[in-house]
Amino acid sequence: MSLLNSARTAGRTDGAGRGGFVMALRAEWTKLRTAGGAGWLCLLAVALTVGVGCGTARAVRCPDAGCGQDAVRLAMTGVTVGQAVVAVLAVLVVSGEYGTGMIRTTLTAVPNRLAVLGAKATVVTTVVLASGTVAVLASLLAARHILPGNGFTEAHGYAPLSLADGPTLRAAVGSVLYLGLIAGLGLGVATAVREAGTAIGIVLGLLYLFPVVGQVVNDPEWQDQLQRIAPMTAGLAVQATVDLPGMPIGPWEGLGVLAAWTTAALLVGGLLLRRRDA
C-alpha cells in the first residue's frame, strides 16, 4: 500500500489504536492457548534445559582450588539446548499460519499488520519468559545440590549457588532474557521468510553455526571477533561469573548484541509483512 493510501487510511479509521492492539493480543493469546503444541514445546524447553544442566553439573569435577570452572555457567548450560525448542516454538507461531493459509484470516481480522506482529511477539515472549524463569531456577536449584559433591566446595573457593550473589542473579536474569530474545529472533526470521523449515534452518544456523566457524578459524583475533558478533556466544556472555576481563565481550554488552540481532530480524520481518501481499 502506498504512503498516500496509508495516510488516508489512518485519517478515516475509527481509532485503530491501543484498543485494537489489546484485541489483537487477546486473539493471539487464545490462538496460542488452543493450538495444543505450544504448551508441550514449553514443557520440552524446560525439561531439556534442566536435564542438560543437571547432566553437565554431574559430569564436571573440581578436584582442587585452582580448577577455574564457572559453576554458575555450568548450572545453566541447558539454555544452549533449550533455546532450540524456544526458537522452534516462535517460528511455528508465524510459519504455522503461512503453512495453512490461516495468516489471511488473521490479517483479515486484524488488518494492522504491525499490530499482528506485535501481538504475536508479546504473547510468545511472555510465555517463553515464564518458561525460561522456571527452567533457570530449577537448573540452579539442581546444580546447588549436585555441584558440592563434585568438588565445588567452599574449600575449593565455591560458595553454594545463590541468587543473593550479584553475578549469579545477573546470570540467571540474563539467561531468562536471553531465551526471550531468542523467541523474538525466531519470530522475526519466520515473518521474513514465512516457510517453517527455512526459518528454523536460518535461526538454528545463526545460533549454532557461528561457534563452529569460530573453532575452525585459527587466528585468535578473528575468533574473538566472531564471538563478539555471534548471537549465541555473545548473548550467553551474560552467564559468565569468572574471569570477566578475559571474555571477548562483557555480560550485558553480549546480551545487547543478541538484542540487536532480534531487533534487526523483527524490523526486517515487520517491513516485509507490511509491504508484501498476504
Binding site: A24, A27, T30, A35, G36, T100, V110
Partner: peptide, 20 residues
C-alpha cells in the same frame, strides 16, 4: 481450508471473536 487443523471449530471462532 485455511485454518489450523489442531484447533477445535469453537476455538477457531473464539480467537476471531476476541480479535473483534
Amino acid at each position: 481450508s485455511a485454518l489450523q487443523p489442531g484447533r477445535t471449530a469453537r476455538n477457531h471462532l473464539l480467537w476471531l471473536a476476541r480479535s473483534q
